[in-house]
């Protein structure tokens, strides 16, 4: 109960409120709250380096874990797997008279995954998922599993839309137990496997994100989870096209994100080429009609020459007959 009041207070810091770090003495001017997670609240803030995102929490353990993960990510060169970490510090909260931990990240401006799909259309789902699978492949190669993969933790950024991973709170070292999860995207909940951090755990969540994106809602598990999911896939026009890939991901058949990426890509190409072959077969039908028409024309041409030849022969015979007379 105590925690709740503290959290509520942290969620309602007024715009313009300034917090100063105890150790590094950097100051941050709160602008507005960006979101609330299980372990704290994230604010958009202004710092000497420009706009940043600040995550505050009364749970120092959780914050420290997250910072550890973000630090590991910053070591991955060249690829942005999560927001980059700028500062970690404590702040003495005069209201609760307690130390509140916070860390500062790069501010990523973007649109959340589901509303982007709603606005721009379902054709974007597979494109963003393919991007996501490439990112996951890199993450897995570094020895991590994202864990709490869900639309809320995905952001679509930029003019050339690109997916970004947010909230690394659930990110777990491979081989350990998943730290955080959300039931709908958790294969354990659906009775489809363990909660051990391995790439196939994330890939199950990816399949569930696609299902979520097409139905735009979550649903509860009934008796047989697998059958229910397969039925849902079969009942949706978009999902049906990627049925094979989705079922394999749900069954945990992919050991690497790149395998799922390849097969999803193959399904996309297959789909577009099948529409092409349809038009091609249309063309060929047209051509065969033309040919038959031409053939008929040709046959009538033969008939014509035959008639002319016969007519000329007849005339010649008549001429000879006349000469003989």
């Amino acid at each position: 109960m105590m925690n709740n009041t503290l959290k509520n207070h942290l969620c309602k810091l007024p715009s313009g409120y300034i917090i100063v770090g105890k150790w590094h003495k950097h100051s941050y001017k709160m602008i507005k709250p960006l979101g609330k997670g299980a372990n704290g609240v994230v604010y958009l803030a202004e710092s000497s380096k420009g706009l940043v995102a600040v995550k505050l929490s009364d749970n120092s353990t959780a914050i420290t874990s997250e910072v550890n993960v973000l630090k590991h990510f910053s070591k991955v060169q060249g690829v942005a797997l999560g927001p980059s970490l700028l500062d970690v510090d404590d702040w003495f909260d005069p209201y609760s008279k307690k130390v509140v931990c916070f860390y500062v990240m790069e501010y990523i401006k973007g649109e959340d995954f589901l509303s982007f799909i709603q606005k721009r259309g379902k054709e974007w789902i597979v494109i963003l998922i393919l991007q996501l699978l490439s990112d996951l492949e890199k993450l897995h190669q570094e020895g991590w599993v994202f864990g709490d993969l869900k639309p809320e933790n995905l952001l679509v950024v930029g003019q050339a839309p690109k997916i970004r991973l947010l909230d690394v709170g659930g990110t777990t070292l491979k081989g350990r137990a998943i730290k955080e999860f959300t039931e709908f995207y958790d294969r354990g909940y659906w009775g489809m496997g363990s909660r051990k951090a391995e790439p196939s755990y994330d890939l199950f969540s990816v399949a569930m994100i696609m299902i979520n994106a097409c139905y735009l809602k979550r649903f509860e598990k009934k008796e047989n989870g697998r059958e229910q999911l397969i039925k849902m896939i079969g009942a949706d026009e978009t999902l049906r096209k990627y049925r094979k890939v989705l079922v394999r991901a749900i069954d945990g058949k992919y050991e690497h994100a790149r395998e799922m990426h390849q097969e999803l890509m193959a399904a996309v190409i297959d789909e577009s080429s099948s529409t092409k072959t349809k038009s091609r077969s249309n063309q060929s039908r047209k051509r065969s009609v033309q040919k038959r028409y031409q053939k008929r024309k040709k046959r009538s041409g033969v008939l014509e020459t035959a008639l002319i030849v016969m007519f000329l022969l007849f005339m010649y015979v008549m001429y000879l007959y006349g000469e003989l007379l």
């Binding site: 353990t61 910072v67 550890n68």
Partner: peptide, 22 residues
């Protein structure tokens, strides 16, 4: 306690706690 350590050191201690918990 852990909270009295600077954030950098705290991270290292936390890794030990995580490791033990696992």
């Amino acid at each position: 306690t852990m909270e009295d350590l600077p954030p950098e050191k705290r991270g290292e201690v936390m890794e030990v706690v995580d490791e033990l918990g696992e």
